[in-house]
Design a protein around this nucleic acid. Structure first.
Length: 581
RNA sequence: GCCCUGGUAGCUCAGUGGAUAGAGCAAUCGCCUCCUAAGCGAUAGGUCGCAGGUUCGAUUCCUGCUCAGGGCACCA
């Protein structure tokens, strides 16, 4: 309908331009909007105000000419001028009815688009360090990423979801050393434990497994450890312990501790995500980039292209020449590559896989990192414009009014899994995406738990369950739902509640498109609330199960279509659509 | 100091270059002999952070200021 009006206005405009001898600007966009206020008709166009100056006419005069020049259309009942120069279109109800058969024809695919077909997208998200279970902070990225992926797929993109495993680097060494220290503690009560090592309970569970299968064969000299612990500098102390741990165990046995931590934590992460309805096609290992020399290759390439500087004993990437605020270290003074070096390799790998779009979802704390990554991509002669970085603001956790700190190292956190047990997947997924991603999210545990019924997800699900219930009642009362008859009787749907519901159903495709292309799942959440609201209003205003067969079938057909759209929308959000509540 | 985000009803947040700025919660008042009251309807609540600018029109765009959160490592 929007397009029909757009074309009519476009034609009328050209006609007016011809007869009044003025020249239209080379490019102008005709905007047609669904109105909010019924007194403004069904669709409104503001083109007269947009063009009035360039054309040299008063907006209302131009609007009037356009109105008169618009050819008749079977669906347009009347055109009115209003306000400063709006052209309002009043549409015949039957134009709205046409959405119902379309909903049934496409079913689960209603709202799906093929306009972005063959666009290959890589979507990387979560990618939390495998040093502990996922907590509530990670949940936001997981829910957001998974929903964006669903939306993009529905919009026609070919999406691959990927989790980048930071299985190389110092954090992992700290983890391995933490496990080793806990292991030592089992046999030496006197040993203290540094507060900047990983101290969550999950470490103790891991240690128990090692003790069970390997006994005390890896115990080590207590004095040597205590000596290292005496260092005043907390981070240096950790490095000493890592060094001692590596020396004491040797390469193979160190791997035993390392892998024990990595494998079981990663397994836990996979399970938690799966339970949360978040699936990845790829789990990409950082270490693999070291092993297959991609990191080395990148460094060589950058060296060749003269992007590498040596100063203060380290190798730097001259990112400041590409818009970054300063240069960045790639190889440290001690010869070790930085995380940034392997991240460059990772992005090279992503680009080499031939995606049309590479999207990273990062926590907002990484924003300073964007310039250097884009600089590296440009330096490697790739198109940095294909990389889009979506920042998700932090979720701050509250228990009532008390703000809780979340730290993986200190072991003080609520895990994603615990959240799911307490709040439920549906409510948690919905709560996470209800806020715009760039908004801070205050996640109040007390509120989420004690007043979970206030979560609008129940309101939407209730609409779906209510429709299902009406259908159950229908057959219990001995009626048979005849959709074909309903589709032929749609002209009976003319009440305000019915028209509103039809208008909202018509909006669905636009909403999906906009939510997908802008990476804004909350648009869909708010839309579904509106749709549920329209339905609940209709439910209270009209009886569906009435004796008049024609009216009954028409109304049942309308709420049947509404049910389908609720289901499609909820599925995209990863939320279930229960038939009973 | 520099760079991101945000400042909209008592609270939590949507929204928009346009016609009377919306929703939930909280408050007040109504609605179940009738398809699920996890619902519906109504009332009340606003100088859209402050000040300039662009515009026919700014809460929306631009600039400055201010407040709040985050980021500015040879950590990942």
């Amino acid at each position: 309908m929007k397009d029909i009006i757009k074309n009519l206005v476009g034609d009328a405009l050209e006609k007016v331009a011809g007869s009044h001898h003025f020249v239209l600007p080379e490019s102008y966009a005709i905007q047609i909007e669904q109105t909010r206020d019924a007194s403004h008709g069904d669709y409104a166009c503001n083109i007269a105000m947009v063009l009035s100056k360039q054309v040299g006419m008063k907006p209302r005069d131009l609007a009037n000419l356009i109105k008169d020049a618009t050819t008749d259309n079977e669906y347009i009942l009347k055109i009115e001028l209003a306000g400063p120069g709006f052209i309002n279109f009043f549409i015949d109800a039957t134009a709205y009815h046409s959405i119902i058969p379309e909903i049934f024809e496409q079913g689960h695919d209603f709202g799906r688009s093929t306009s972005e077909e063959h666009q290959k997208v890589l979507l990387e998200f979560v990618s939390a360090n495998p040093t502990g279970p996922l907590h509530i902070g990670h949940g936001r990225g997981a829910a957001y990423g998974a929903t964006v992926a669903n939306l993009l797929r529905f919009a026609g993109f070919d999406v691959t979801c990927e989790y980048y495993i930071n299985d190389a680097g110092r954090q992992m060494d700290i983890l391995a050393a933490s496990i080793w220290l806990r292991y030592q503690q089992v046999f030496n009560n006197a040993l203290s434990f540094p507060d900047n090592a990983y101290q969550g309970d999950y470490i103790k569970l891991l240690v128990n497994n090692i003790v069970e299968s390997h006994g005390d064969q890896y115990t080590y000299d207590l004095d040597a450890i205590n000596e290292a612990m005496a260092d005043d500098d907390a981070e240096r102390r950790l490095d000493s312990i890592i060094r001692i741990c590596k020396e004491a165990l040797g390469k193979d046995c160190y791997q035993l501790f390392f892998k024990a931590g990595l494998d079981s934590i990663l397994q836990g992460i996979r399970e938690d995500l799966e339970e949360f309805g978040v699936c990845f096609e790829n789990w990409f290992s950082e270490q693999s980039l070291v092993d297959d020399h991609t990191v080395d290759a990148c460094l060589e390439k950058l060296e060749e292209e003269k992007w590498i500087l040596e100063k203060e004993g380290a190798k730097w990437f001259a990112s400041s020449r590409l818009g970054d605020e300063k240069d960045r270290v790639l190889i440290r003074e001690n010869g070790q590559a930085t995380y940034f070096a392997s991240d460059i390799a990772y992005h090279k790998n992503k680009f080499d896989r031939g995606f049309d779009k590479v999207i990273n979802i990062w926590g907002a704390d990484h924003h300073g990192y964007i310039a250097r990554v884009k600089a590296a991509i440009t330096a490697l002669n790739y198109d940095a414009g294909k990389l889009e970085i979506l920042l998700v603001q932090f979720a701050t956790l509250y228990r009532g009014k008390e703000k809780l700190q979340m730290s993986t190292r200190s072991g003080e956190f609520i895990t994603l899994n615990e959240l799911q047990q307490e709040v439920g997947k549906d409510a948690a997924r919905f709560f996470y995406i209800l806020r715009k991603s760039e908004q801070h999210l205050d996640f109040d545990l007390e509120l989420a738990k004690s007043e979970s019924n206030d979560n609008p997800v129940y309101y939407i699900q209730y609409a779906h369950a209510r429709i299902c219930s009406v259908f159950r009642q229908l057959s219990e009362k001995g009626f048979i739902y005849d959709r074909k008859d309903g589709l032929n009787s749609l002209s009976n749907l003319t009440e305000p509640h019915e028209m509103k519901l039809l208008a909202t159903l018509t909006r669905f495709r636009d909403v999906i498109n906009s939510a997908a292309l802008n990476y804004e799942p909350h648009q869909l959440a708010y839309y579904l609330r509106d749709l549920a609201n329209d339905f609940h209003g209709y439910y209270n205003a009209s009886q569906f199960i009435v004796d008049d067969t024609v009216i009954r079938n028409a109304r049942m057909t309308l709420i049947d279509a509404c049910k389908q759209v609720l289901l499609n929308g909820l599925s995209l959000l990863g939320v279930s659509a229960p038939e009973k509540m």
